[in-house]
Amino acid sequence: MAPPDNDVLWARSLHCTLGGSEALSGVSLGVREGEILAVVGPRGSGKTTLLRCLSGQLTAQQGEVWFNSGPVHTLAPAQRERLRRERFGWIDPEPGLVPELTGWENTALPLLLRGTSHRAAKTAAQEWLERLDIGGCARKRPHALTQSQRQRIAIARALVTTPSVLFADEPTATLHRADGAQVLRTLAAAARSHGITVLLATHDGEVAALADRTVALLDGRRVAAVPPASGAEGVAACSLSV
């Protein structure tokens, strides 16, 4: 069964088991070109697993993943790696920078790995760092920067190749709220101006408000909406049991 034409990324009934427990049970999803799609859900609901399946880092035990009308789930590991390198970008909650390289070198690394010339890679990296307001960090190593600066370098590194799809897994989880909001705004603005499709996994409702569309996950299944945190209910249960 071929995917609809206007979806850049499309998944059908993904089942994925991680460490003995089922992380995804029958998730289907279509991502339209150029949209920002938020995947929301509490911790352990399968957001990261879904993103890893869609980006080809994990293969689902059952189900299909299609990218630009080509199957991803049947590709060999080396081809999926190449797809990740050339078409996808990835942002983790942790910056994951290479500690031995300076800010601009970290940003330019995906370009250098593709074989871009040193000078072109440096220019592109500097431009992206300026756009994300961290031009001053270009010559410093990651250990000398703040967490929010490091995370912005990770975002610049993901954007420098202008990928077709950008996977952002809780990109602001380790930042303070003000830093996080600013990082997200720059990320969204950059994605919209360059027509990059973004999949944003988050458990935060405010973060999800930036997105065009929201998909909710709960215990590895798609649900209509995530129920609010059940703090009050839990307190009631505790008081009853005493």
């Binding site: 390198r85 050339e86 994951g96 690394l109 790995l113």
Partner: peptide, 16 residues
């Protein structure tokens, strides 16, 4: 190991 993980996450081929 951190460096290696970060590079592999980027999609750096193991040959590099």
């Amino acid at each position: 190991t951190h460096t290696t993980e970060a590079l592999l996450r980027l999609g750096a081929p193991p040959t590099v």
